[in-house]
Amino acid sequence: MKKILRDKRAIILFVLPALLVYVIFAIYPVIMSGYYSFLEWNGAGEAKWIGLDNYKSLFFENTDGFTDALLNSFVLAFLSVFVQLTLSLILALAICHPRVKKQEKFYRTVYFLPAIVSTVIIAELWKKIYHPSYGLLNGFLSQIGLGSWQREWLGDPKTALIAVFVPIIWQYIGNHMLMMYSAIKGVPGELLEAAYIDGASYLQTCFRVIIPLIKDMLIVCVTFAIVGSLKVFDLVYVMTNGGPLHATEVPGTLMYSSIFMKNQYGYGSAIAVFIVLECVIFTFASRWVMYRMFGDDSNRQDVRRRGRKSK
């Protein structure tokens, strides 16, 4: 058996195809992006090594509003964590209520539905919803007598940002709900029963038993929501492409336009590298902060260990 498992020829045959494709089409390009980010290059002519100048102009010269774009992505991260995840948690807890058992599957399936539809379709559909004259939103407003609230949601720089963020949040509520739901289902039944016998209401059980026990999953969700917001592109690109008047610009759209509209290859690559670094840093930082804030006290760890075992 040992001999068979050390068969060099078989190992090469098994690993090499995957490794080749992966290194050529994922690892090599990322490294090259890092290299490009130190260049001043319009793609066709001579490339000039300019060190960290691209990164400097990202933050200090701010000619194309990069810091505003960054701020917009932070707004989205904030909304995702505090609005989207709160809603997801409420829904997940609600459909785990013992009385909802029968309809549970229905709710799960329906809430998750927008998440499987491609972002481009969601974006096109919401463009229609926001349509100034025949859109669902303005139509609805005039129906309920709020005609004065009607506006060009995507055309007005004041409302465009929030109008773009609403569908992003809407689309992935079900995604986070599902993650939390699966964690709640992992909470050992004895604990819920014990809480019930002790006379706790479902609301109390949620706050005292379930939420502390699914803390790990909540942290995963927060990390996902933040990182997803920082690298958002598709939906913003399709709905507004950063407009009107750069009101909805995010780092992803700025990167795309720097490279393909303005031929600033080096500068665009610096944005790309920045997005990668930012995502890595936020992944670790958000976990570290959250574990610090809601650090494990020994009692709960006990409970969790018991919970794990019975899983």
Partner: peptide, 16 residues
């Protein structure tokens, strides 16, 4: 690779 967003490879991939 799971940490790398596809965006970050766009330009080098196009060249390649």
């Amino acid at each position: 690779g799971y940490m790398i967003p596809m965006h970050a490879t766009l330009l080098p991939l196009m060249k390649l």
